[in-house]
Design a protein around this nucleic acid. Structure first.
Lengths: 203, 203
DNA sequence: AAATTTACTGAACAGTGTTCATTTTTCAAA
DNA sequence: TTTGAAAAATGAACACTGTTCAGTAAATTT
């Protein structure tokens, strides 16, 4: 029965087509201008067609978000290489923030905007699992080697993540006034904060 | 010539009416459902009338944001009372996060959504000045007394703020999985993170 | 070749921010 | 007190948005 499988494959290809169009539109024009109608136009289909493959926009955005997390995972695999756990923790922090600063539209979709989370009920969200597990695994190792000044791995992971997310999201949303950073540029200032934080948590 | 002054006063009263309607709508229905049309209906005017007092929605949201910051400033004045700078820093952290967790819609408008920032060109934003200055003043004092493990007040202020903002905004946007916090509730976990952070930065 | 299932779309609905010609109200001068 | 100009308010429209659904076109089965 190759035909039902082909149909299934074609269905997936169409979904990919939609997601690819959406993500490229995201990167080029940003979230605000990425409408169902624009995506439909880009893939040369009617807007209504998209609703044959996705129940609503939130569900579509959830899949785009998954794609975006794939990119973060790729960067993590490439950059997080150190064997020493604390060194690796430092790599995780720096890579995460680097990704956020250099991919603001993707980061927005992954961590700032609400929309994709409407598609899924609380704690069924698995898009961020891989990156989060890398962090949890790493802090757990750091803790067992007594290399960081935390007592609980979960508190450690959430704290470190929050610090990184705070820096990125305040920057993306233009809440950091130049008065607060002095003469250097914002990215340099953010890196300074990470430097200090890494020293702060080091035992 | 009391008449031009009365006109000016009436103009301001109308603006206040619009902002009050907007902010109550924000608190009751959230950002998504706060439309110009809904606000107009609430104050019993035509939508077009609002455009006689505000150039566009972003400019209106900027004023609503100002109101929200006023509420934060009130809470700060009430709760930030310690004379000792480090103790005061701890109060600032806890009060800020408390405010964010308990006023998610206001916090959203102040620090997460982009919209109100479109109304103003970068670094003309003064809505957050009072709270930020409280923080900067406090860390500067802490530094001069050598009570915190930072070398630069700006790095210290941005770091502390980012930690608080990270915790609040990840929570508001439902990015914190229960898996990461264990059995206790999210607010407790967030408080644990603050406890640890306060210990971390203490010299 | 006909019938049936699948894929797709045009048109509509209800909503959004925003503009503008037109009407209503206000208020000083005749 | 009536008149005329200035100010305030609005109805209707424009160009969007997400979404639905009846109807058309294509593919597959009988």
């Amino acid at each position: 029965m190759g035909i039902t499988e082909r149909k299934e494959r074609e269905k997936q290809e169409m979904r990919d087509k939609i997601i690819d169009a959406a993500i490229s539109m995201f990167l080029e024009e940003g979230y605000e201008k990425t409408s169902i109608r624009n995506i439909a136009e880009k893939i040369e289909y009617s807007p209504a067609t998209i609703y044959l493959y996705y129940k609503d926009k939130d569900e579509l955005l959830y899949d785009v978000q998954k794609q975006a997390f794939g990119k973060l995972d790729d960067v993590f695999r490439e950059k997080i290489t150190a064997a020493d756990p604390f060194e690796r923790l430092e790599q995780i922090c720096r890579t995460y923030v680097w990704f956020g600063i250099n991919n603001p539209e993707l980061y927005d979709l992954m961590f700032i905007i609400k929309a994709p989370m409407n598609a899924i009920d609380d704690n069924e969200w698995h898009n961020g699992d891989q990156a989060l597990n890398a962090l949890i695994g790493c802090v757990t190792e750091c803790l067992s080697k007594q290399e960081i000044r935390f007592s609980d791995p979960r508190v450690a992971a959430l704290s470190i993540w929050s610090m990184g997310h705070g820096l990125i999201s305040l920057n993306i949303r233009c809440r950091i006034k130049e008065e607060l950073i002095g003469d250097i540029d914002k990215e340099k200032m953010i890196n300074k904060c990470i430097n200090e934080y890494v020293q702060l948590i080091k035992k």
